[in-house]
Nucleic acid binder design. Structure first.
Length: 718
DNA sequence: AACGGGCTATTTTTT
DNA sequence: ATAGCCCGTT
C-alpha cells in the first residue's frame, strides 16, 4: 500500500485527474484514442482504494479481452504495490463464468457444466440440424449459429422468438429450440449463454443480486462502446441502485456493431443513471499533430457522434504519406522496401505495424516481407486452444469431467479411428434422441441391448471402457498427469504420429505444449470450488490464448484494423485504402455501416505515433478476379495539408484526389460515370479486350453490374 | 478409412 | 485463388 495518495495524481493532466478522483457517482469518461484511458481507469481504482479507503473486494472492473484485464490488473498492482489477485478484474465472460460456477444451482446449471467455444457450438448446431433433417445446403449452419447468438445477445430465449414469423425465422427458431435443448441435456454453455444466464441470475434471484450489489459497491467498465444489450443490462442491474459506476469508452472507436455491440448504450447510460457526469479526455499523448489532425478530419465526416476533438502538444511531425500503387504486389513491395529502409536507421522491426481491412490481404504482404528477409508476425488465425489436436485432447478431458458432454463425444467417438462409422454414430444419435438421453447414456444402453449388432457393440464397448479406464486412471492424478494419461491411452499421440510429415510433428509438439500449459496452470489460480480439471477446461475455452511463440522476437506486426484497436506503433502502414475494400463493399451502401468503416479508419490512423503510410492499389486481385478500385473516400477526407503523395511508379500518373483510373483505347476510364440509354447511370468498373471485341463492365444504379460490348453500347459520359 | 474431384463461399472477431 | 466440405471411389 502506498502512503502518499498524491502520487496517484502525479503526472496526470487536469481532465485525467478529474476523472480519477471524481465523486462516486455515475461517471462517463469519453476517452479518445491515445488519451490515457487505461491509465485513468487504473488510477481511479487506486484512488478508490488508497484515498477513499474502499476495500479492493468492493471493486469490480470489467473488460472485453483477457489481455486488457491482465494489463489492468498488473498496472493496478504496480501502482499500489500490492497483490491484486483477489480483486475482481476480468472479462464479461470470465466474470459471468465465475458467478455461474459459484451459483450453478440457482442458475439452473449442473455444477460440472462445460463451455462451448464457437467451433464446438457450430458442430453442435450442425448435429442438431441433421437430426431435425434441415438441409444444410439451404440453411447454412453458420447462419443458424449467427441467429442463435444474435437472439441470445438480445436476451431472447428459444421460446420467445422474434416478432416476425416468416419461414426463415421459423426454421431458425426450430433449430434454436433443439440446440437449446441439446445444450441443457449435456450441460453445455456457449459464450452468449454465459452472459444471458448471468443476467437471468440477477433477474431470478433478487436476494443474490442484492448481495452482489452490496459487495461490488464500485463498478468500472472499459471499452463501454463495445457492450451489447445483455452486458449493459447486467451492468445496470448491478449498479443502478448505488450509482457508483464508471464507464470508459469512445464512440468514435465503436467498430463491433456487426457483432451486437450497441453504441447507443452510451446514450442510454445518460438516461438510466441520474446525476451522471461526463469527462472528456481529449489530449492525445501518442501521435504527431499531422496524424491526429488527419484522424480528426476523417471522423468529422460522421454524423452520429457525441463530439470530441483530440489535440496534442506534440510537433506536426512528418506528413502522412499516401502511396498509390499499380497493383497489390507493387503495394506490398513498396511497403517492404520502406520497412527495410526504416530499419537501416536503427529502428526495430517491432516498431512497425501493417494494418489491413481483411485477412486475405496478408498473403501478398507476407511474400514481400519474406523476399526482403523481414521478420514478421501475423495476428489472427487459429489460436492454441482452437487447434484440432488440442480440442481432441480436451474433449477426452471433458468426458472425464462429464461423460454426458455430447459435444465432446461427437468429437472423439471415432478419433483415433476405432471402427465407429457413420452408421453406428447414427444409431447412437437416434437412441439418444428417442429416449431423450445423452449420447453417453445411449451408448451404454446400446451396449447392453441384445438387439444391437455385435460388431457395433464391440466397438462401442471399447469406447466406453476406454473412457471408464481414463476416468479411473486420472482419479488421483495431478492435472498434467491426467492430460498425459489421456493422450497416451486414448491413442491420440499414436494417431497423430502416424500422420507423418511436418504437420504431424507440430501436432505432437502442440500436444506436448498442452502438458506444459497444464503444469503452468497448476501453479497458478486454482478456484477452490472447482476441480483442477474443470477449472482448466474453462480456462481453455475462455482464454483461447494468443500464440505467444514469437512474441519476444522483434518482428513487424501484421493484423487487421479491428485487431489493432488499443495498440500503437511508431510506424504504421495501412494497406488497401480503396473504395470497395476499405470501406468494404458490403458496408458502402448502408450509411450506418459506412460510419463504422470510417471509425475503423479513425482507429487505424490513430495507431500511428510518428509516421503513417496509407496505401492503395489501382488494380487488385480478389477471389481470383481483377478489380479496379478508386482511392478510398477516406483519403479524400484528409485535408491535403497533412498529406504527401508518393508516386514512384510512372504508370500511376494520377493524383489520388481526382480519381481518373487507367485509360485504355476505349476512351472511357475505370471509375468514370456513364449514361446508357436503357440502364441509366452507372460506373465503369472493368474492361476486357481491345478494338471491336472490347467489352466494358458497368455497375448500373438500376440493374447492377453488366458487361456490354463497347461497339454496340451507346454510352455517353455524364 | 483414406484419397480425390467437384462444388461453394469468401469482412471484420472475442469470449 | 483457394480452402473447406461433401460425396463418391479405392
Amino acid at each position: 500500500m502506498i502512503e502518499d495518495v498524491s502520487t496517484i495524481l502525479d503526472e496526470l493532466n487536469d481532465a485525467q485527474r478529474n476523472a480519477v478522483c471524481a465523486p462516486s457517482n455515475p461517471l462517463l469518461i469519453l476517452a479518445g484514442a491515445g488519451s490515457g484511458k487505461t491509465r485513468v481507469l487504473v488510477h481511479r481504482i487506486a484512488w478508490l482504494i488508497s484515498a477513499e479507503g474502499h476495500s479492493p473486494y468492493s471493486i469490480l472492473a470489467v473488460t472485453f479481452t483477457n489481455k486488457a484485464a491482465k494489463e489492468m490488473r498488473s498496472r493496478v498492482e504496480h501502482l499500489l504495490k500490492m497483490d491484486a489477485s483477489s480483486m475482481w478484474i476480468g472479462t464479461f465472460h470470465g466474470i459471468a463464468h465465475r458467478l455461474l460456477r459459484a451459483h450453478s444451482q440457482q442458475a439452473g446449471l449442473p455444477d460440472n457444466f462445460q463451455i462451448l467455444d464457437s467451433d464446438d457450438q457450430l458442430r453442435l448446431i450442425k448435429r442438431v440440424m441433421r437430426e431435425l433433417e434441415v438441409d444444410e445446403k439451404e440453411w447454412p449452419p453458420r447462419q443458424a449459429q449467427w441467429f442463435i447468438n444474435q437472439q441470445k445477445d438480445e436476451g431472447l430465449r428459444a421460446h420467445q422468438g422474434p416478432n416476425v414469423s416468416d419461414f426463415f425465422s421459423k426454421v431458425m427458431q426450430k433449430i434454436y429450440k433443439a440446440y437449446e435443448q441439446a445444450c441443457n441435456q449435456s450441460g453445455l454453455v456457449d459464450f452468449a449463454e454465459l452472459l444471458l444466464r448471468a443476467l437471468e441470475l440477477w433477474q431470478k434471484q433478487p436476494a443474490l443480486l442484492k448481495h452482489y450489489q452490496q459487495r461490488f459497491a464500485h463498478l468500472l467498465v472499459d471499452e463501454f462502446q463495445d457492450t451489447n444489450k445483455i452486458q449493459y443490462q447486467w451492468i445496470k442491474a448491478l449498479s443502478q441502485n448505488s450509482g457508483n459506476i464508471t464507464i470508459v469508452g469512445d464512440d468514435d472507436q465503436s467498430i463491433y456493431g456487426w457483432r451486437g455491440a450497441k453504441v447507443e448504450n452510451i446514450h442510454d447510460f445518460e438516461k438510466d443513471f441520474q446525476n451522471m457526469q461526463t469527462i472528456r479526455l481529449e489530449q492525445n499523448y501518442r501521435s504527431t499533430a499531422n496524424i491526429l489532425n488527419a484522424a480528426n478530419a476523417v471522423i468529422s465526416h460522421n454524423v452520429e457522434r457525441l463530439g470530441k476533438e483530440l489535440w496534442t502538444e506534440d510537433k506536426d511531425g512528418e506528413p502522412i504519406q499516401v502511396y498509390a500503387a499499380f497493383n497489390e504486389q507493387e503495394e506490398a513491395r513498396f511497403i517492404a522496401t520502406r520497412i527495410k529502409h526504416y530499419c537501416e536507421n536503427d529502428r526495430s522491426w517491432g516498431d512497425i505495424a501493417i494494418l489491413y481491412r481483411s485477412n486475405a490481404q496478408s498473403r501478398v504482404l507476407e511474400e514481400s516481407l519474406i523476399s526482403l528477409q523481414i521478420p514478421y508476425r501475423i495476428y489472427g488465425g487459429l489460436r492454441f486452444f482452437e487447434r484440432a489436436e488440442i480440442k481432441d485432447a480436451l474433449s477426452y478431458l471433458r468426458l472425464i469431467a462429464s461423460p454426458d458432454d455430447d459435444a465432446a463425444i461427437e468429437r472423439v467417438l471415432n478419433v483415433p479411428p476405432r471402427g465407429i462409422g457413420m452408421k453406428t454414430v447414427d444409431l447412437v444419435r437416434a437412441r439418444a434422441r428417442d429416449n431423450s438421453i445423452s449420447s453417453w447414456q445411449a451408448i451404454t444402453e446400446l451396449c447392453s441391448d441384445d438387439q444391437t449388432n455385435n460388431r457395433i457393440k464391440t466397438s462401442l464397448k471399447r469406447f466406453v471402457n476406454l473412457v471408464i479406464q481414463l476416468q479411473a486412471d486420472c482419479l488421483d492424478q495431478g492435472l498434467h498427469q491426467q492430460v498425459q494419461v489421456v493422450m497416451q491411452d486414448s491413442g491420440l499421440i499414436e494417431h497423430y504420429k502416424k500422420g507423418g510429415g511436418e504437420k504431424a510433428l507440430s501436432r505432437i509438439e502442440n500436444l506436448e505444449e498442452l502438458i506444459n500449459a497444464c503444469r503452468d496452470f497448476e501453479d497458478t489460480d486454482l478456484d477452490e470450488n472447482l476441480t483442477p480439471l474443470t477449472a482448466f477446461l474453462s480456462h481453455a475455452a475462455l482464454e483461447s490464448g494468443d500464440v505467444q511463440a514469437s512474441e519476444f522476437d522483434s518482428a513487424v506486426q501484421m493484423m487487421t484494423l479491428h485487431s489493432a484497436k488499443g495498440l500503437e506503433y511508431p510506424l504504421v502502414f495501412v494497406a488497401g485504402v480503396e473504395e470497395g475494400l476499405f470501406p468494404h463493399s458490403r458496408s458502402i451502401e448502408d450509411p450506418l455501416k459506412l460510419e463504422e468503416e470510417r471509425r475503423l479508419c479513425y482507429v487505424g490512423i490513430t495507431r500511428a505515433m510518428e509516421k503513417l503510410y496509407l496505401c492503395w492499389a489501382e488494380k487488385r486481385r480478389i477471389y481470383g478476379t481483377d478489380h479496379y478500385h478508386s482511392p478510398s473516400r477516406f483519403l479524400q477526407e484528409i485535408p491535403s495539408e497533412y498529406v504527401q503523395e508518393i508516386r514512384l511508379n510512372a504508370q500511376v500518373a494520377r493524383p489520388y484526389m481526382h480519381s481518373q483510373p487507367s485509360t485504355n483505347d476505349t476512351g472511357f476510364n475505370v471509375g468514370q460515370r456513364l449514361l446508357h440509354p436503357k440502364f441509366g447511370e452507372g460506373t465503369v468498373i472493368h474492361f476486357e479486350g481491345q478494338g471491336q471485341q472490347a467489352r466494358i463492365q458497368i455497375n448500373f444504379e438500376s440493374v447492377g453490374s453488366k458487361w456490354l460490348v463497347l461497339a454496340y453500347a451507346r454510352l455517353s459520359p455524364c
